[in-house]
């Protein structure tokens, strides 16, 4: 990104609105999309409040009168995934794959139509709920960190934060979905992994349990964390 910014800067200072072309060629007009300078979210000062983009939260702020204060101070811009849509789910929008959700529905509906009347009640069809359940089942509570103590590297068990453990769960699901036959598409494999994880089965849940087992075995090293 830094390279892109530098290039853009050079281009803009050199040509003032047109891309530098060879002397005999006609200048190519620079499009507005090329002019857009990319910025990371951290460029905004820490004291700027987060954007309020949900209608219900805005209503709440209006009720308490806090919206008056917010309207006169600089606020961070909303991210491209922040939307006021009724279908918005912060956890789903960032990490999910719409094609995989479709495949989840396909698989579950096929099971549903084959099942008897009593079994039908136990089958979850909502892909969003399956996704949340799968992530919750894959989230580890401990992780192993390599720490070098006395010339030996120990795998030291540590508690992980909520954010980190959610990230690990998503990463494992993605890695498991990538490990597939070449004829199977990624969304299809991700759908099967999500459904397996929702039922606390499958490779990703096994990986979490394996990690917990390893952490339990290494509990003697836990004190290396504080030396």
């Amino acid at each position: 990104m830094r390279f892109l910014q530098r290039t853009l800067k050079v281009l803009l200072t050199a040509s003032k609105g047109t891309l530098p072309a060879s002397a005999d060629a006609t200048p190519i007009p620079l499009r507005w999309s090329t002019l857009k300078v990319l910025k990371r979210y951290s460029v905004f000062p820490a004291h700027w409040p987060q954007p309020v983009y949900r209608p219900e939260e805005q209503e709440k702020l209006t009720g308490t009168g806090e919206i008056e204060e917010l309207s006169f101070i600089p606020v961070r811009p909303a991210r491209s995934t922040d939307t006021s849509s009724v279908f918005h789910d912060p956890r789903v929008n960032i990490q999910s794959n719409p094609q995989a959700f479709k495949e989840v529905k396909r698989i579950q509906l096929e099971k549903y139509h084959k099942a008897s009347e009593e079994e039908k009640r136990g089958i979850e069809l909502n892909p969003q709920r399956i996704f949340h359940g799968a992530i919750d089942n894959c989230k580890p509570i401990l992780a192993l960190i390599p720490l070098k103590r006395g010339g030996v590297t120990y795998q030291v068990p540590l508690g992980v934060t909520e954010k980190k453990s959610e990230w690990m769960a998503c990463k494992w699901l993605i890695l498991a979905a990538r490990d597939k036959h070449r004829r199977v598409h990624f969304p299809q494999q991700l759908a099967t992994e999500l459904i397996d994880a929702f039922h606390s089965e499958g490779r990703v849940v096994k990986r979490k349990q394996e990690l917990h087992r390893q952490a339990e075995a290494n509990r003697a090293y836990a004190h290396y964390r504080w030396r």
Binding site: V86, F87, L125, N126
Partner: peptide
């Protein structure tokens, strides 16, 4: 049963 999201049943959705 293709629309599972409860928001899709609301008039706003």
């Amino acid at each position: 049963l293709w629309l599972q999201n409860p928001a899709a049943q609301t008039p706003e959705g």
